[in-house]
Design a protein around this nucleic acid. Structure first.
Lengths: 250, 250
DNA sequence: GCTTGACCCTCACGTTACGTGAGGGTGTAC
DNA sequence: GTACACCCTCACGTAACGTGAGGGTCAAGC
């Protein structure tokens, strides 16, 4: 009475009949018996086994491995799970790496012939934004800001990058002037430029809240790569900019 | 003179000879010609095409799709790339979901029979840590702290969770006492307990630096789910705890 | 008793992107 | 002359089923 036919079991477990045939063929889940006319019958035990098999299948195990897991009573399920976990993480990493590569490819394609490292170098000197790209991805890959930035910048042409660079240079130059004049970083003149800087980022990269801006400022002095690059526009500019941002965010 | 043989091309492109045979079979990359004895010869054009094919292959495109991309001159490479990008992200999400499922499965397995929602409920009342899990994953999924936490907690038994709960309750109770006595949150008595709270998290979940702890404190008041849960131990406790943490982190 | 569906069966080939021999020529260095 | 590296063309194998082809079975309705 509790013997079910293939169709019922298939619907119950959310698989096709062919799948059950296949599992029967390879001996992974074998029907409890057959009717006189040859119809497969499944008991509750078989259905349970099927569900365990499907659980592991969902986790991406191969049927061969699943056979070992559900077959041997004392099989190291935990070790298998751990191993699988690592494999999945690696795969996911690979896929995200591909996403990254696509972003780069689209950037290259959109910017006409190519906006590859050579052109980058032309615009940015020896501070290649791409150099920082991988790490940025690791740090902020999953944040909205990163995605927004990646999406927007993918469409930028060389002319855009030149405009961006020009804007930043202008901001830096005016800050250097203030700094040279001995203006304190929390002076309204400086904080106004810090605010311009924030607008610049919001405009070209991602919505930059004062809080995020404050974090950026800290990084400008903490991360030597940023600091060195900024200081190229004037010694001590990184600290000055960071202080102005801090004052503006407060 | 610039005609290369299969082996050379294969080594050059980092693929096997069989791959080149296959691409020839399906007409994806066809040799420029054959020698009298039937050897395949590849010119620079073919090698270039091969490299373009391999580029798209790296991105996970099927050979059929690649044929369309590199075949038609005006094919919408960009649209294809965008679509592929989305697919890859979805796949990556799926894989990370599996990792998550494995974490849960291991948790279930380690805690003896099962440490499922029912038991969770028993220990934590109606504040199920798992309920917050998905969002935590989204927010912090890629951080070291999250991984550390997920790894450690995967091994916790029901008894562990009870200990954790008891410790937190004790911390909260003593804070409520201080609060009732009118002790300011920046009083050493309160900040000492805040420090205990930090140690508790470092001990059971992940290395909690003062900076991270400060962030947590802010979230305790900003996120109603945390706030409400904490306030169950005493009205206003969330703010008091947050203030004590802030004072302790300063 | 007969038809009509819905369901079941067993082959068996198709899918992806090659891996892996089998069986046999080719090119050149010693 | 022969050893060895390299090339060729079949052609089957891989994972997990999808998809018919060709043909029985079962219960319901006429």
């Amino acid at each position: 009475m509790s013997e079910l036919t293939v169709g019922s079991v298939a619907r119950l477990a959310g698989v096709t009949v062919r799948t059950l045939h296949h599992y029967d063929e390879i001996g992974l889940v074998v029907p409890s018996g057959r009717t006189d006319s040859g119809y497969r019958t499944y008991g509750s035990g078989e259905v349970e086994r099927l569900q365990e098999v499907l659980f592991y299948r969902e986790l991406g195990f191969s049927l061969e491995t699943i056979r070992e897991i559900v077959g041997r009573p004392g099989y190291h399920r935990e070790a298998a799970l751990l191993q699988q976990r690592e494999m999945l993480e690696e795969k996911a990493d690979r896929l995200l790496g591909m996403v990254d590569a696509i972003d780069r490819a689209m950037l290259a394609q959109r910017t006409g012939v190519r906006m590859s490292s050579e052109d980058m170098l032309e615009v940015f000197g020896d501070f290649d934004p791409k150099e920082y790209e991988q790490e940025a991805k690791e740090r902020w890959g999953d944040t909205d800001a990163y995605k927004q930035s990646a999406q927007r910048t993918a469409g930028y042409t060389k002319a855009d990058w030149e405009t961006i660079k020009a804007e930043v240079d202008d901001i830096y130059a005016r800050l250097v002037d203030l700094m040279a004049a001995g203006t304190p970083a929390d002076d309204p003149a400086a904080t106004a430029i810090a605010e311009e800087h924030r607008a610049h980022i919001s405009n070209w990269f991602y919505d930059c809240s004062p809080a995020i801006h404050a974090g950026l400022g800290q990084m400008y002095v903490a991360d030597v790569r940023f600091k060195e690059n900024i200081d190229k526009s004037g010694a001590g500019l990184a600290e000055y900019l960071a202080a102005a941002i801090a004052a503006n965010s407060a």
